[in-house]
Every structure is written in structure tokens, then in C-alpha cells.
């Protein structure tokens, strides 16, 4: 636990654990689909993890956009106009406030948060609570091995958000970080993907 903490906790509910656990494992059998096209990946310059997330996203060929807490200008000057043309998907690793605002505004475009992960900082590292398509949760298991590189790992996860309607489940993971990287009591961060709603 003091170095690399490796375990998986499926945390939908206590009684749902066996089902969800096997469901995430079974996701290994789900064939890969074309990933969702992301218009932009938003990151918050105030947080090192968010910057690392954006660097990896850029390396993957995704367009990135920086904010500093407030997402108003990006939405008002750019995203508003894109969403007027049509519902384009976005992703990010930000504080809760920015994610909440994007989520609320996206509803008016018939878009939803289709993947969300809370990253909670503690003395031993970062705990991740993930909700989203099973294939993304499967990819998210890699967080257990990536230690301080968890944020870059999240960029890989959101970059492979599947298109269309997917079964949504919940999972948890943890990334141990060395002491100097730990941000005990820091604000939780969130990785997220917002995409057009797909009716059942």
C-alpha cells in the first residue's frame, strides 16, 4: 500500500459487486468499436494532473483547450457556436465546477455525460471512482499500474470512449503516488466525456 497500490474495488453497491466485477472483466470480450470523435479536450492549467492529461491527449492527436477554473469564455466564444451547428462531443479533466457547467449546458443540446471519473487525492495516492461504458472501465483498470502517470492514462481512456449507446457500470481503482506527488486534501478532479444522447 505504501508503494504501488494495486487493487480493484467495484463499488456500485455492495450487493452489486460480484455482478459488476464480472461485468467489467467480461468487457475484455467486447470487440473494439470506433471511438467517439472528440471536438476538444479541456484541461485546467491550475492542476498538474490536468496538464499531464492534456499533454497525453495532444500526443494522441486530440485538440486541447486550456481553462483556468472558469470555462465561460471557451463555451461562450467557441463551443456555443460549434453546438449551434450540431452536437459535438467534448472531454476533459477539470475540477467539478467546470464539468458541472459543461454538463448543464450540454443538456440543452441533447447531450449527456457518458463517462465520469472522480479522482480523489489521499495520503496513499489517488482513488478513482469511474462510471461509464464497460470498455472504458476495463481500460481504466490500468490506473492501478500507472502510479503518478494516472492522468496521462485517463487521456487514453477518454480517447477510446465508444460511440453509440453502451452499457453503463461503475468501478473503482487506485493509483499510488510517491509522497511528493500526493496532494492530500486537494480538490477532487474529474475526467469526463460529454456526447450526444443516444435513445434506447
Amino acid at each position: 500500500m505504501t508503494n504501488r497500490r494495486q487493487f480493484l474495488q467495484i463499488s456500485m453497491t455492495a450487493t452489486a459487486w460480484p455482478f459488476a466485477s464480472s461485468a467489467v472483466r467480461a468487457a475484455a470480450q467486447i470487440p473494439a468499436t470506433e471511438p467517439l470523435a472528440l471536438y476538444k479536450v479541456i484541461y485546467d492549467r491550475r492542476f498538474g494532473a490536468s496538464v499531464a492529461f492534456a499533454e497525453r491527449a495532444a500526443a494522441l492527436g486530440l485538440g486541447v483547450h486550456a481553462i483556468e477554473g472558469d470555462m465561460t469564455r471557451f463555451w461562450y466564444d467557441e463551443l456555443y457556436h460549434e453546438w449551434k451547428k450540431g452536437p459535438v462531443a467534448i472531454a476533459g479533466l477539470t475540477a467539478h465546477g467546470a464539468m458541472f457547467c459543461f454538463e448543464q449546458l450540454a443538456r440543452d443540446q441533447s447531450m449527456r455525460v457518458v463517462f465520469r471519473a472522480e479522482h480523489k487525492f489521499g495520503a496513499a495516492g489517488v482513488e478513482h471512482a469511474l462510471t461509464g461504458p464497460l470498455t472504458m472501465l476495463r481500460d481504466g483498470l490500468a490506473l492501478n499500474d500507472r502510479g503518478a502517470e494516472w492522468a496521462a492514462c485517463m487521456a487514453d481512456v477518454v480517447a477510446h470512449c465508444p460511440q453509440g449507446r453502451a452499457e453503463i457500470s461503475h468501478a473503482a481503482a487506485a493509483s499510488a503516488t510517491v509522497a511528493r506527488d500526493a496532494q492530500v486534501d486537494a480538490e477532487s478532479l474529474y475526467s469526463w466525456v460529454i456526447a450526444p444522447a443516444v435513445k434506447a
Binding site: 483556468e68 477554473g69 472558469d70 470555462m71 465561460t72 463555451w75 467539478h96 465546477g97 486534501d185 480538490e187
Partner: peptide, 18 residues
């Protein structure tokens, strides 16, 4: 108009539990 108020809810001495 702005949404900047949503970016100031971080944990702090006065706000230990966001």
C-alpha cells in the same frame, strides 16, 4: 454574464468539504 462562480468552490480552510 459569467459562470466563473462555479470555479471558486475548491477546498479551502473555510470550505474543508466541497
Amino acid at each position: 454574464p459569467t459562470l466563473s462562480i462555479f470555479s471558486i468552490g475548491a477546498r479551502s480552510a473555510f470550505n474543508p468539504t466541497p
